[in-house]
């Protein structure tokens, strides 16, 4: 059998997916995604249920085989590449009721097992976080609540020290204080190490300030990949009398058109260099990331 020569991938070159296609049976879930993750950034991956977020992350971390395309870390293929996979931690949502292997494990066993796959696993951090979340190593995963399972996945992600770390719904089941704590912890770790994180979440506004870039996945395709600040400042909600709003929105990208009585409103996503005309009697309001996401991903999103 031919032995391919594989070198330690250069993580500074980033993690790249090219033409990623994923089919489950006849159903195509991802349709040719190109995505480059740069080192040292926190990315947010958002999308509706079934948009393909978890699938995409599982492909980027070589947990599942691609139907077509390739995933490269520093130019090296990631699939079955121990050196590359040691640099990528995809800490998945735990679901002991659906997985026999997970159900039988205790917290300590789970962490010990995961630790084997990451050469820079941080034991000190692991025990600090366990104490912080008041989790015991001898507790069975099957007995933990959803929030506590999220904590285990967060500990796994943090302690792995993997240069590329993906978290799938880390906020699921956590109360508001724990969520805030998580984001603080994430920022602290990020400031200290400059690791790259990809966070998928449905609680968007809470995460918005933390995310340097936002990736919106819709129906198996990347709809948006932009700097979060720039995306938010390029989107506005305009409202007023219909003819005025129509005049103002002429030629612009308009989403989520809605009418309330005589007044209408819509979200406008300005391209670079575009501006709203100043001679229209309209009200202009800023929109949050969550609203932008909702407007872009609503059924029949683009209107007018």
């Amino acid at each position: 059998m031919a032995r391919e020569e594989r070198r330690t991938p250069d993580i500074r070159q980033g993690l790249t997916g090219r033409g990623i296609v994923k089919r489950y049976g006849k159903k195509e879930v991802l349709h040719g995604i190109d995505l480059a993750l740069e080192p040292g950034k926190i990315y947010g991956l958002i999308g509706r249920n079934g948009a393909g977020k978890t699938t995409l992350l599982s492909l980027l971390s070589a947990q599942n085989p691609l139907t077509a395309g390739e995933v490269l870390l520093g130019g090296e293929p990631v699939w079955e590449n121990i050196l590359a996979m040691s640099c990528i931690c995809f800490s998945r949502e735990l679901n002991p009721s659906g997985e026999a292997g997970t159900a039988a494990m205790k917290v300590g066993q789970y962490l010990d097992t995961a630790a084997a796959y990451f050469p820079h696993w941080d034991r000190e951090m692991e025990s600090r976080l366990l104490a912080h979340f008041q989790l015991e190593r001898r507790e069975k995963l099957a007995k933990l609540s959803k929030g506590m399972l999220s904590m285990v996945t967060i500990i796994t992600a943090m302690a792995s020290k993997a240069p590329y770390t993906f978290l799938d719904e880390p906020a699921a089941g956590l109360d508001v204080i724990a969520r805030e704590e998580f984001y603080r912890m994430l920022l602290e770790e990020y400031a200290a190490t400059g690791r790259t994180f990809v966070i998928s979440t449905h609680i968007i506004d809470e995460a918005a300030a933390v995310l340097e870039e936002t990736i919106i996945l819709k129906d198996g395709e990347i709809l948006v990949k932009e700097n979060t600040e720039e995306l938010v400042s390029s989107c506005v909600y305009i409202s007023g009398r219909e003819e005025e709003v129509r005049k103002a929105a002429q030629g612009l990208r308009v989403y989520h058109w809605e009418a309330v009585g005589r007044s209408v409103g819509c979200m406008v996503w300005l391209r670079e260099g575009e501006e709203l005309p100043s001679d229209c009697a309209i009200q202009v309001q800023p929109v949050s990331l969550q609203k932008i996401f909702a407007a872009l991903c609503q059924e029949g999103g683009e209107a007018q």
């Binding site: 805030e180 603080r184 920022l187 990020y190 400031a191 300030a209 933390v210 340097e212």
Partner: peptide, 17 residues
Amino acid sequence: TNELARVYAINPATAAK
């Protein structure tokens, strides 16, 4: 920048901006 990021729980790149 890091202090601001930590206190306000925002991305350091945003604080730096």
